[in-house]
Computed example of a mutant assay.
Amino acid sequence: MTHSLRFFSLLGLFGLLGAGQSRAQSGPYASMPARPAAAVSTPAAAPAPPMVPAAPTINPDSVFINPEVRPQFVGGDKAFKAYLAKSIRYPQQALQRHVSGRVLVNFVLNAQGRVTDAHVISGPGSGLNDEALRLVWLMPPWEPARSNGQPVRVACTVPIAFSADR
């Protein structure tokens, strides 16, 4: 009989300990960190090498608007203006009507720096829009845009100015 009484007393003690543990996890001290166990000295392990994030893969169909490195006409802005001055053919219809103005052409440069998907956003018409598109389609390849060191497709808009006074 004494053995069974002792058994029930131990069982009750474990029950109280378990109830106290669950209360501590849900009571006012639940958000406090647990106390660390006694420190055991173990030999220090070598630190793990720093994690170097892998460069994200770039979908070849993506068209960037603001890449890390912008595309550039080979030779820069000065060479771009020289290309336009050399290649422009002022439309006869625009000359007769004394039409001048600025044509905004939007296009996508592919990863090789070649023009694709060119279209006029705005322009005065009278043949100037068509001439601006012709100039953009015939441009030599640009230095492509880059993201994470990889050449990428990028959306570009260039203004092409026409002056009937020339």
Rank of each mutant, 00 (worst) to 15 (best):
L104C: 09
S4N: 15
T2E: 14
G125N: 03
N66S: 13
Q25R: 08
D61K: 14
V74H: 09
F107V: 00
P28R: 08
A38Q: 14
V108P: 03
F80Q: 05
S31R: 09
A24E: 14
W142Q: 00
A155C: 11
T42I: 15
P53Q: 06
S126A: 13
I58S: 02
A45V: 09
M1C: 15
P141Y: 03
D165N: 13
Q25L: 12
H119S: 10
P67D: 02
S22R: 15
F80M: 05
E131A: 03
R23C: 14
V74E: 10
Q96D: 14
R153I: 04
A24R: 06
Y90W: 03
R23I: 13
Y29G: 10
A85I: 07
A37H: 11
R166D: 10
R146G: 05
L13D: 10
P124T: 03
V105T: 00
P49I: 05
F8R: 13
V120I: 02
E143P: 11
N110G: 07
G101L: 04
S4V: 15
K78C: 11
V74S: 11
P124V: 04
P33W: 02
S147D: 14
G149E: 06
H98C: 06
A111Y: 04
C156R: 11
R97N: 07
G123M: 04
S22V: 15
E68K: 06
L133N: 01
A155H: 10
P91W: 00
N106V: 12
W142A: 00
A39S: 11
D165F: 12
N110A: 08
G149L: 08
L138H: 13
F8E: 15
P91I: 01
S147V: 12
G20K: 12
G123K: 05
P71K: 05
V63Y: 01
M32I: 13
Y90K: 04
V154R: 00
R134D: 03
S4H: 14
N59V: 02
M139T: 01
D61I: 12
D77M: 08
L13F: 10
N110W: 05
F80P: 02
R23T: 14
R166N: 11
T157C: 09
Q93E: 11
A164W: 02
T157A: 08
P49E: 06
I160M: 05
I58G: 01
L5Q: 12
V136Y: 01
N110I: 06
R89N: 07
E68Y: 06
A38E: 12
F64C: 02
L128H: 04
T157G: 06
G18N: 10
W142L: 01
A79P: 02
S31F: 10
M139W: 01
N106K: 15
Q72R: 08
R23E: 13
D117R: 15
T42W: 15
S31H: 09
A164E: 02
A161G: 11
L109M: 08
A45W: 06
V52E: 09
A111G: 06
T2W: 14
V115T: 02
P71L: 01
S9F: 13
G76Q: 04
Y83K: 03
A132R: 00
V120D: 00
